[in-house]
């Protein structure tokens, strides 16, 4: 589970001139245009972009839920052709299985891969505890609040032990206060269980708080516009002048588009 990687090792995720065009009956819709991106092991990369850009499409391309029209997506050196357990996804809508309890959701992945019951229970319990949901193991998702559901989503993705975590605006539906709390929690979890994370957001504060590197995207068709490294020590402080400076930079870059 522990990886010791320098920055110069082969990237764990690499997008090589990836484009995606949707075809529908009435029109063709170019969503992603020629995106190339390398993500290093255990790096926290945030894709930052305006509302209706192809961020979700990028995540789906890495996830293998969609295939690129041209170009290539590689995860851990292998070309992505289908979804697989080496990549875990946390959805904005949580996509919890409504008919499974919290425990059932978290152990869904390990169970699918045939992990024996005792082991997968232990593992699931570890992550349920990690996201702070002990005591809710037997609850169904319809009894949980938005923040709690998202915690289950995160625990479920982690419990499957993916190499790469893909998070598609996971806190987009939450209220501001819960959002701050979840950002803090995610940061803590990530420090404890280091993974490569690709995180999508349209909130610059969230981006700066979490990212090692922020990729700023343009409107559709999405291209990479700019890259910002964030070297602030963690945990970061929202009111730190350096923090605010980076936010200002991001907003400046985004304003250019308009």
């Amino acid at each position: 589970m522990e990886h010791h990687g320098g920055v110069n090792k082969t990237p764990i995720i690499s997008l090589d001139h990836v484009s995606k065009t949707y075809l529908s009956v009435h029109k063709t819709n170019e969503v992603v245009r020629d995106v190339s991106l390398d993500v290093q092991e255990n790096e926290f990369v945030v894709l930052f972009g305006p509302g209706q850009c192809g961020k979700t499409t990028l995540i789906n391309l890495i996830a293998g839920l969609q295939l690129p029209t041209s170009g290539e997506v590689k995860v851990d050196g292998k070309t992505v052709t289908a979804p697989g357990p080496d990549r875990g996804v946390v959805y904005q809508t949580t996509a919890l299985f409504p008919f499974c309890t919290v425990m059932g959701n978290v152990e869904f992945g390990p169970k699918s891969r045939g992990v024996p019951k005792k082991q997968r229970r232990e593992r699931a319990q570890y992550f349920i505890d990690l996201v702070g949901l002990q005591g809710f193991e037997k609850s169904f998702p319809n009894r949980l609040s938005g923040g709690m559901r998202q915690r289950v989503g995160i625990a479920r993705a982690y419990a499957n032990d993916p190499k790469v975590m893909l998070m598609d605006e996971p806190f987009g539906h939450l209220d501001a206060q819960t959002r701050y709390m979840m950002e803090e929690e995610l940061e803590k979890i990530w420090q404890k269980e280091k993974r490569t994370v690709v995180f999508v957001t349209n909130n610059s504060e969230e981006a700066v708080y979490l990212a090692d590197r922020i990729i700023i995207l343009t409107n559709t068709p999405t291209r990479i516009k700019h890259e910002i490294k964030v070297d602030l020590p963690r945990p970061r402080v929202y009111s730190d002048p350096a923090f605010l400076e980076i936010r200002r930079q991001i907003e400046e870059i985004c304003d250019d588009t308009l």
Partner: peptide, 9 residues
């Protein structure tokens, strides 16, 4: 009409 529409049809 594009490729997709033809395929659908």
């Amino acid at each position: 009409m594009n490729e997709y529409a033809i395929q659908k049809r």
